[in-house]
């Protein structure tokens, strides 16, 4: 997914809660893909996913774990998945 990104910046600019920023890292094509800078702010609205022209990112609301006291939604971008896998 990171490899699909062309760093247009749409997701960073139009994220309503400013969760993302373009990272300083490069992908193999030489673009700077975004990374999550404020995961706690993510509402999982998936607007980044709708704006992405390269199908490289998306947001998802996750079921809140029972033990987690504050009922927050978590950021789930494929960039995260790809970075950690």
């Amino acid at each position: 997914m990171v490899e699909r990104c062309k760093a247009c910046g749409f997701c960073v600019e139009f994220c309503p809660t400013k969760v993302l920023a373009l990272s300083s890292a490069f992908n193999s094509k030489g673009y700077h893909p975004p990374h999550v800078v404020a995961p706690e702010k993510c509402s999982g609205c998936d607007l980044c996913g709708m704006y992405c022209p390269d199908f490289a990112i998306y947001g998802q609301r996750l079921p809140v774990a029972k033990e987690a006291a504050p009922a927050r939604t978590a950021a789930a971008t494929n960039l995260e998945v790809a970075r950690e896998s």
Binding site: Y58, Q60, L62, A76, V81, E84
Partner: peptide
């Protein structure tokens, strides 16, 4: 963050 078993909804 944990690795999530999710895929982009538009992928199919």
């Amino acid at each position: 963050m944990t690795i999530l078993d999710v895929t982009n909804p538009v992928e199919p």
